[in-house]
């Protein structure tokens, strides 16, 4: 089992390496001259050449890749073309904001997803089950910005309960900060609750069909004990998996929600930089997102291995 876990970790590192190559190569080798695009058609050839040099486009690809990678390890991600500021400085504050929003949402939404999933399995076929099913399906079918804007209309514009925009700054007090987080995390949270609920419910229902669950009933266990002691430990793998997918989604899904609420996180930085074609920033943010995503997925895979008694206790 230890080998399995180490292999999975090694795989994550290798994947991260390849992803960095892809992120780098995308800018470098895909059709479209970034320098020309940035300066526009009217730019003089001298200006374009100068910018190419600044972006490191004039040296062979593999050399500038290793320069870039080396900088990465030193925490030096280069300079933003648009603002001239250091990329790592730009990212660090934004990353904290994004992680805060994601964490805030996760703490509330993920347990709610589990609870609704358990209830759905326990009350299968009742009107509660049907109603939550339909609601979950609808939420999954909605674009994220739709949920966000509906919340803005209902809870900000019409009632004025919460601010419609979430511009925050480090100097703000905690309550002010939290108030501005409510609508963005609700927009993210609904989708997460819906996904986690559906998977939790169906994986428990799957296990309820197993022979050992019937045996547990024939041994006189209560319905509650059958569900939580006998079924749940064997339904963990898909539940862990969907939790990871949603945690990863939280970090990535913020791109849209941050745009809607003008929340100064990493996602908004990415969208702004994309609009300005500020490639050093785009590359760095993409790599950070991919890194978090890979890390979360690797953690989930390892937890799944740990939750499997056949792997935990070898023959």
């Amino acid at each position: 089992m230890r080998n399995l876990i180490l292999t999975r970790l090694a795989l994550a590192i290798v994947t991260l390496f390849f992803v960095s190559v892809i992120v780098f190569a995308a800018v470098r080798f895909l059709p479209g001259d970034i320098a020309q695009q940035l300066l526009g058609q009217s730019a003089t050839p001298e200006n374009v050449a100068a910018l190419r040099q600044q972006l490191g486009l004039d040296v062979p690809g593999y050399i500038s890749y290793f320069d870039w990678l080396g900088g990465l390890f030193r925490g030096d991600l280069g300079q933003s073309i648009a603002t001239g500021r250091s990329v790592s400085e730009l990212i660090s504050g934004r990353l904290a904001n994004t992680l805060f929003l994601a964490g805030f949402t996760a703490i509330i939404a993920i347990p709610l997803g589990y609870i609704f999933g358990f209830l759905g399995a326990l009350l299968k076929g009742t009107s509660f089950d049907r109603a939550t099913n339909v609601i979950a399906l609808s939420i999954i079918s909605l674009p994220e910005y739709f949920v966000a804007y509906v919340l803005v209309v209902l809870l900000a514009v019409k009632t004025g309960w919460f601010p419609a925009l979430s511009r925050v700054s480090p100097s703000m007090g905690f309550l002010d900060y939290a108030e501005r987080l409510v609508l963005p995390s609700m927009s993210l949270g609904f989708v997460i609750i819906a996904y986690i609920m559906r998977v939790t419910k169906s994986s428990i229902l799957n296990v309820l069909g197993e022979d050992y669950v019937q045996m547990a009933q024939m041994k006189g266990n209560s319905r509650f004990r059958v569900m939580f002691v006998h079924a749940l430990p064997n339904a963990l793998a898909p539940i862990i998996n969907v939790t990871a997918i949603n945690l990863a989604y939280l970090v990535v899904g913020v791109v849209i929600v941050e745009t809607v609420f003008v929340y100064p996180g990493l996602g908004q930085l990415l969208v702004d930089s994309v609009a300005k074609r500020d490639m050093p920033v785009v590359q760095a943010v993409c790599l950070v997102f991919a890194g978090i995503y890979i890390l979360v997925n690797a953690t989930a895979d390892i937890l799944i291995v740990l939750s499997n008694p056949r792997l935990r206790h070898a023959k």
Binding site: Y212, M215, S222
Partner: peptide, 25 residues
């Protein structure tokens, strides 16, 4: 709840597939 008190205590069950009927966890 009365049935649960009976099962396993006064009426027990032995299933066909032992490997599927023991909880793997």
């Amino acid at each position: 709840t009365l049935l649960e008190k009976l099962r396993g205590v006064r009426v027990a069950y032995v299933a066909q597939s032992a490997s599927a009927s023991f909880n793997p966890s």
